[in-house]
């Protein structure tokens, strides 16, 4: 089953954020709750945790790109 990694809702007035760094590469094992990607909003830098345990099958938004709230950033295959 595929579990999407979503850009979370980061506050009332924030529509998009930047992907700073993926801590994993495609094919890596990830554990639910593990920090997997670093993002920056206009105000803060924060890590997003893996929503499931499995293999990082696909990175859809690479580092340095912007993504809107709700965008699928990557896929974990469980």
């Amino acid at each position: 089953m595929d579990t999407p990694i979503l850009m979370p809702n980061l506050g009332n007035e924030i529509d998009e954020a930047q992907i700073d760094e993926w801590f994993k590469t495609e094919g890596d094992m990830v554990t639910e709750g593990e920090q997997i990607v670093l993002i920056t909003t206009p105000k803060v830098t924060m890590e997003i945790e893996a929503p499931a345990t499995g293999i990082l099958k696909k990175i859809l938004v690479p580092a340095d790109e912007l993504a809107a709230v709700g965008t699928t950033l990557g896929i974990i295959e469980t």
């Binding site: 529509d15 998009e16 954020a17 930047q18 909003t41 206009p42 105000k43 912007l66």
Partner: peptide, 10 residues
Amino acid sequence: LSPMRAITLR
């Protein structure tokens, strides 16, 4: 432009 794409007051 959104605040991620242009220099903001911050």
